[in-house]
Computed example of a mutant assay.
Amino acid sequence: MGKENEEIIPLPHYGRWISGTLVILLLVSIIRAFAHGQIDWPVVGKFFMAPTLIKGLGNTIVITVLAMVTGLILGIVFAVMRLSKNPVTRWFAGFYIWIFRGTPIYLQLLIWFNLALVFPVINLGFWEGRMVDVMTPFFAALLGLGINEGAYMTEIVRGGILSVDQGQLDAASTLGMTRLKAMRRIVLPQAMRVIIPPLGNEFIGLLKTSSMASAIAYTELLHRAQLIYFVNAKVMELLIVATGWYLIVVTILSLIQTVIEDYFSRGQDHPSKRSLVQNFFHFMTLRRGKAGGAR
């Protein structure tokens, strides 16, 4: 009976308090250093909503969305080819992945942009024109980012397809479905549960990678910020503005990713891994749901 009345005293965790205090002190010192550093903060506020930067942000979002759509389409096509029993298509898909995952995206953008040096004229039979007129900074950025993303999406989609039980394909075959129809109607909808989390991460990564398109004069956010600080010499101020906009957009995309993941994770016993921002948004969503149910 004495043991039942004993009070359980938790062990003190001094290491947690010490490490937490050190992290807070480090964070405060970094914030103070930037706050009192040689940064013209009024310039940051002045250019944060500058029309030219807002337009650059719009170009960043446009090229990111189009490149991701291109990469997703290529990823699905090449993932199916990679899983094909045809050795030629399987080899070609592997070669595509090897080339575009094995070379830097910066290099690929430069190759696409300078393609006119190899093919001065493009002839499609029904139309002929100069490559320099076709391969604009926008089109070069779209091809460079989209095709490179397709190589990564191929492996993501392939992993999602392999996560679906092979017996479902066999059952679809006995019902008279072709392999492609079974993929479209049975396998891919189920594979989305596995594909969505890395797809969201790839989309956010692609948004940041799109800044490399400034190397080929595509007027995205970073390129427009560079054009401004080349004139007024406010380098850090304009880079801080660009950083702020990237963080805002990435935060919004993280919240959207949370909603989509929750939709496709219905019925799962274990929650998917989320970032800090995603966990906060998920917690607030659950609280609103419980408050609504209490009423």
Score class of each variant (00 low, 15 high):
M1R: 12
P10L: 15
Y14F: 08
G20M: 12
G20D: 13
T21W: 14
T21D: 08
L26N: 10
L27G: 14
F34Q: 11
G37L: 12
F47Q: 09
P51Q: 10
K55G: 11
G58S: 04
I61H: 05
V62P: 13
T64M: 03
V65I: 12
L66K: 07
M68F: 10
T70P: 10
G71Y: 01
G71S: 01
G75N: 02
V77E: 00
R90M: 11
W91C: 14
A93R: 12
G94S: 07
W98Q: 06
I99F: 05
L107N: 05
L110T: 08
L110G: 03
A116T: 11
G125E: 00
G125R: 08
F126T: 08
F126R: 10
R130G: 13
V134R: 08
M135W: 05
A140S: 08
E155R: 03
R158T: 01
G160Q: 01
L169K: 13
A171L: 02
G176C: 07
R179E: 03
R179W: 09
L180N: 14
K181S: 12
R185A: 14
V187T: 06
L188E: 02
P197A: 03
I204Q: 02
G205F: 04
G205M: 05
L206G: 02
K208L: 06
S211D: 04
A213W: 05
I216H: 06
L222Y: 09
A225D: 14
V231Y: 13
V231I: 09
V231P: 14
E237S: 04
V241E: 01
G244F: 03
V250K: 07
T251F: 09
S254Y: 06
V259I: 12
D262S: 10
R266Y: 11
K273W: 08
K273D: 15
S275Q: 03
F281P: 06
M284K: 15
T285G: 12
L286V: 15
A291Q: 11
G292T: 13
